[in-house]
């Protein structure tokens, strides 16, 4: 038995595990940025700052309020599974960014980093459902199942969207995928895969069009009974997932740290923040996908489209080699 983190011929330096704290800090800062931006956009949509704690400072006001709130309890709640579900989103987001290289450094230079990310985003299926299940409340359970209904529709297109850069780069190592985009970003010549990937990011963050799982029409869905710190951690997890998804798109589709003047790590952050801003902004621009109808959209439109994209990429990859 050797070290599980086997090295490959990737152009990336693995940093000491202690740097994971810094990675967590960056992820946290990105999540807060997303929340601040969302607060500002919410205030603009309402046409005013919306009270004392509205606008860009809303996330801080919410955090302070939730930390002081007494925890709501429900009868016969499955507390263990409930807590695992609520806290797991944040952990999953942290595990996702371990394989994302910041310029030339990474924490976990796994040779199958793309699969790792994919495995982590599948974790969200379990976690959101567990959050819905644990509370032993009808609305909450409905929310959990709504998420699974969306999941059945978005997951396969997302998987095949991740396949396209991997085929073109002929590797599953995230750093090597980024390095394979010398000159032309994958987002430019595989736009369908890129768009479907972004849709997938919104989906596993229970964000925007995929928010019916936590919709107000089922009084908050999966998070209906979450209160106090539990709710804070759940919401932080959603923003962190959105940030992790945006960060992973940078090496996969946006050339990693490539760019003029600035060093690689700065470009990764700039691109991540830009993409994150787009995702946050899209929340109020797209209609909700109905969970009962999205399955067919996923399988009849997205899946064939992204499979065609994979075919085109594969033909180009074979022709180039």
């Amino acid at each position: 038995m050797d070290d599980p983190t086997s090295m490959t011929d990737s152009p990336i330096t693995t940093v000491a595990p202690g740097w994971a704290i810094v990675a967590l800090g960056i992820l946290g800062a990105l999540a807060v940025t997303a929340a601040v931006l969302d607060g500002a956009l919410a205030a603009r949509a309402r046409g005013g700052p919306g009270g004392k704690m509205g606008g860009p400072v809303r996330p801080f006001g919410e955090a302070a309020r939730l930390m002081r709130q007494r925890r709501r309890t429900t009868v016969e709640a499955d507390r263990l599974l409930w807590r695992i579900g609520g806290a797991g989103l944040l952990v999953t987001a942290a595990l996702m960014v371990t394989v994302v290289p910041l310029g030339e450094w990474t924490i976990f230079d796994l040779d199958v980093g793309v699969m790792w990310f994919n495995a982590m985003d599948v974790m969200v299926w379990a976690l959101v459902w567990l959050t819905g299940w644990g509370a032993n409340s009808a609305h909450s359970l409905v929310g959990g199942y709504r998420f699974l209904a969306h999941g059945l529709g978005y997951e396969l297109p997302l998987m095949f969207a991740l396949v396209a850069p991997a085929i073109a780069a002929e590797t599953l190592n995230v750093g090597a995928v980024a390095a394979a985009q010398e000159g032309l970003w994958f987002a430019v010549w595989m736009p369908v895969a890129f768009l479907v990937y972004l849709l997938g990011v919104a989906a596993f963050s229970v964000w925007g069009p995929f928010a019916p799982a936590i919709g107000t029409d089922v009084s908050g869905g999966a998070r209906a009974e979450l209160s106090g710190v539990d709710r804070l951690v759940f919401e932080a997890g959603r923003y962190a997932l959105l940030a992790a998804g945006a960060a992973f798109a940078v090496p996969m589709f946006l050339g990693g740290g490539a760019g003029p003047l600035l060093p690689g790590w700065a470009w990764v952050l700039v691109k991540t923040v830009a993409l994150l801003a787009v995702l946050v902004w899209l929340r109020r621009r797209l209609p909700a996908f109905r969970p009962d109808k999205f399955m067919e959209v996923g399988w009849m439109l997205l899946l064939p489209a992204v499979l065609l994209q994979d075919l085109v990429v594969a033909v180009i990859a074979v022709w180039r080699s």
Binding site: M115, W116, N118, A119, V122, M123, A126, W129, G151, E155
Partner: peptide, 16 residues
């Protein structure tokens, strides 16, 4: 590595 990560991915999805 591949087999390990795929096992985690498939089994979590299957349980969901």
């Amino acid at each position: 590595n591949y087999v390990g990560v795929v096992t985690i991915l498939m089994m979590v999805m299957e349980m969901a």
